[in-house]
């Protein structure tokens, strides 16, 4: 297993490097500028956080998936937009307003995540059906509350800076994304919850026999995914200074693509945070590269499909089989 995990990581690092290096040949040096890296850096977090949420759902097994991520993110933004001005004014106390905004959005994310967790963990619903339902629910609420129009935050410097500006060269939102990813990685690798989560995803029956509290763990997993989605919602609002109920409708599938390309097993029991981060970055760099090359957006979908197939093929091929017998040192097969 360790060998396999490293191969996946190597593949993703190589993919990132390959795309970056090809940019040197294919487009002008603007691509390699600090501004462009920062520009790409601000676009990664929202998709990256949603992909991490999908990863958690998948790792927990039980047919785990979360289709409601972006809908919850948008709803969190909508509710925060409607309630925060009641507490603080964005003109008079921008920092406090932003904190209130973020706090309300997080609370919404927790409620939405808890709903998913309750349906899947305690009511025993199939995740794909449950999150499809909550996706429609969150979307419906957001449309209903906004009448379908976009909500303009206007230019609030502290919020816009958070969404778009760098600190020490790294965009705030990207730095936050990396911090969250690191914390999640620690949670998964070094806590009891994390370790048990992987086991539960790997063999739910054995998990139950071993005394793991499966229902509670499923609940906590989707709660966490909901929180991640709400953070994505805050970042989206900060980046665009506006919130719309149907923002990022294509994100549902892209987040899943990122997770699968990161080697997260849809059946459960395996996934690495670092790989999801690299996968999200690879997709972003490739996307921007294609835009720089003025290649039609239609081809972008094609390119992503190709990358996914390449990745799946890479997982299937046993590279060891092509190495001459003399160099091989395989474990014993059969008896």
């Amino acid at each position: 297993m360790p060998r396999r995990a490293d191969a996946q990581l190597m593949f993703l690092v190589a993919l990132n490097a390959l795309v970056l290096l090809s940019s040197l040949i294919l487009v002008d040096r603007q691509f390699f500028s600090l501004f462009n890296f920062q520009s790409m850096g601000t676009q990664v977090p929202e998709l990256g956080l949603l992909a991490l949420g999908v990863m958690l759902a998948m790792v927990s097994g039980n047919g785990g998936i979360d289709l409601s991520g972006i809908a919850l993110a948008n709803l969190a933004g909508v509710i925060a937009f409607l309630l925060a001005p009641l507490i603080f004014s964005s003109e008079d106390a921008p920092a406090a307003f932003f904190l209130a905004f973020a706090g309300i959005a997080l609370a919404t994310g927790m409620l939405g995540g808890a709903l998913n967790g309750a349906l899947i963990g305690y009511a025993g619903m199939t995740p794909i059906i449950a999150t499809l339902g909550t996706q429609l629910l969150f979307t419906g609420l957001a449309v209903g509350l906004t009448g379908g129009s976009a909500l303009r935050l206007g230019y609030v410097q502290i919020i816009d800076d958070f969404g778009n500006m760098p600190i020490w060269g790294i965009p705030y939102s990207f730095a936050l994304f990396l911090l969250i990813a690191a914390a999640l990685a620690v949670l998964l690798k070094f806590t009891r919850f994390g370790n048990h989560l992987f086991l539960m995803g790997s063999n739910p029956k054995a998990a139950r026999f071993a005394g793991l509290r499966v229902q509670s763990m499923l609940f906590r997993t989707y709660l966490l995914a909901g929180i991640l989605a709400s953070i994505a919602g805050i970042i989206i609002a900060a980046r665009n200074s506006s919130i719309k109920w149907d923002y990022g409708s294509s994100y549902v599938l892209v987040a899943i693509l990122i997770a699968v390309m990161a080697g997260v097993r849809p059946e459960g029991g395996y996934g690495r945070v670092i790989c999801v981060v690299l996968s999200a970055m690879a997709l972003q760099i490739l996307s921007s590269l294609l835009n720089f090359m003025q290649i039609s957006n239609f081809f972008r979908d094609c390119a992503w499909g190709l990358m996914l197939l390449l990745f799946l093929a890479n997982a299937r091929v046993d590279w060891n089989a092509y190495i001459p017998a003399a160099l091989r040192g395989n474990a014993r097969q059969g008896s």
């Binding site: 002008d28 603007q30 691509f31 500028s33 501004f35 462009n36 520009s39 790409m40 601000t42 676009q43 976009a150 909500l151 303009r152 665009n240 200074s241 506006s242 719309k244 149907d246 923002y247 990022g248 409708s249 294509s250 994100y251 996307s287 921007s288 835009n291 720089f292 957006n297």
Partner: peptide
Amino acid sequence: DAAQQAAIVQDLVAQGVDALAIVPMDPSS
């Protein structure tokens, strides 16, 4: 999808074009 259009605009800005003529999907974003 407004998000996709925004991504294109962002990359063009990073590329440093001289001018943008935009028909926005969602103007406020």
